[in-house]
Amino acid sequence: MAVYTEVSLAQAQALSTRLKLGNVGSLAPIGSGIENTNYFLSTDAGEWVLTLFERLSASQLPFYLQLMQHLARHGLPVPEPVAGDDGALCHELAGKPAAVVNRLPGTAVEAPDVHHVEQVGATLARMHLAVADFAPQQPNLRGLAWWQATAPAVRPHLEADAGALLDDEMVYQTHLAQSPSYLQLPHGAVHADLFRDNALFDGLPGRERLCGVFDFYFAGVDSFAFDLSVTINDWCIDDDSGHLDETRADALIAGYRAEREPTGAEWRMLPAMRRAAALRFWLSRLSDWHAPRDASLLTPKDPRHFERVLRDCVANPWHPGA
């Protein structure tokens, strides 16, 4: 992903030696994404992803790394962090907290069809079931409190109609979060960022199998309906218009229901949660666009996409099976 911190081969070798991963053969920066510094790391012991955390502190990281470990050990196709001799999953490199995870096979799919999204839905549901016995707690750090702090910072950059949309949605979501219906939603540790570029498929065209879900560094305890909505809002959206592709959305929901049946409250709240999910990513892209950080290979994403998605969620609330 974006490269904020340069890592030398010597530094990578020192970490590899500490983790008993052998000699480093290559170290290649990963240019996509915007949050952390990432490298592909090749050693005698295999292929890995090295991440240096630019915003998260060492005290926050155990939640994310333990969640990945928990899901991997429950048979989910997620990377498992490499532990040191002391059992710690978080390490230090170049003055930053760091982690090493196994590199998963496969490639991302830019134009998913029903074959892909059904598998994504099923895997998401399995993740929601698997966290029933995951004890660590940490709130979604990009939840309502972050929206309330970020909205005033980006508001001056918006044209009148976009500013009015943001103002109205912030009022709506603030009231929604206090409602009995919202409080009834099942919660647990969720990925909260399961976009197309965070999933890997492998196999012949038209017969690909989902073989990896990664980048858990926006995870937190939130509603499963919000996590489902985040996923729908990327995998099932027409990229040009922001409109929902109901064929793909129905397939994703079918895959999800094959593993976990949502509660009545989750069904009722899904249109509102899709609005929440669109707002969350509109705000983060606005923040990255108007207040970018210095980084090699960094390309902020256009926030207008999620403005279009939010407008469509408001104008055309979608109820599965309706």
Rank of each mutant, 00 (worst) to 15 (best):
V7A: 08
S8E: 08
L9K: 09
Q13C: 09
S16W: 02
T17P: 00
R18L: 15
K20E: 14
G22H: 10
N23R: 15
S32C: 11
G33M: 10
G33Y: 02
F40L: 06
S42A: 15
T43G: 13
D44E: 15
A45W: 07
T51K: 01
E54K: 00
L56M: 14
A58I: 04
S59E: 15
Q60N: 09
F63S: 00
Y64W: 06
L65F: 09
L67P: 07
P77W: 05
E80C: 13
G84H: 11
D85P: 05
A88H: 07
H91Y: 11
V100P: 01
V101N: 05
R103G: 08
R103Y: 10
R103M: 11
G106E: 08
T107E: 15
E110L: 15
A111C: 08
D113S: 15
D113E: 14
H116R: 12
H116D: 09
V117T: 13
V120F: 06
G121Y: 04
A122T: 04
A122E: 15
T123P: 00
L124I: 02
R126K: 12
R126H: 04
A132S: 13
P139A: 13
A145Q: 14
W147M: 08
Q148R: 12
A149P: 06
T150G: 06
P152K: 07
R155G: 11
A160L: 12
L165I: 02
L165P: 01
L165V: 07
L166E: 02
V171W: 09
V171S: 05
Y172K: 08
Y172W: 13
Y172F: 10
Q173C: 05
Q173L: 14
H175W: 03
Y182W: 15
A189T: 07
V190I: 12
V190Y: 00
L194G: 03
F195D: 11
R196S: 07
D197H: 12
L200F: 10
F201H: 08
F201Q: 05
G203K: 09
L204K: 13
P205C: 12
G206F: 05
E208N: 12
C211Y: 04
G212E: 03
Y217N: 05
A219E: 03
G220F: 05
S223R: 01
F224A: 14
F224G: 01
A225N: 01
F226A: 05
F226L: 14
D227S: 05
L228K: 06
S229C: 11
S229T: 02
V230M: 07
T231Y: 00
I232P: 02
I232N: 04
I232S: 06
I232E: 09
N233R: 01
N233V: 01
D239G: 15
G242A: 10
T247D: 13
A251P: 05
A251G: 03
I253W: 02
R260F: 12
G264H: 09
E266T: 06
W267T: 11
R268C: 07
M269A: 12
M269P: 00
P271A: 07
L279P: 03
F281H: 00
L286Y: 10
S287F: 13
H290E: 04
H290N: 14
R293W: 10
A295T: 05
P300N: 09
D302L: 08
R304M: 14
R304C: 03
F306N: 07
R308S: 06
V309I: 13
V314E: 04
N316F: 13
P317F: 09
P320D: 13
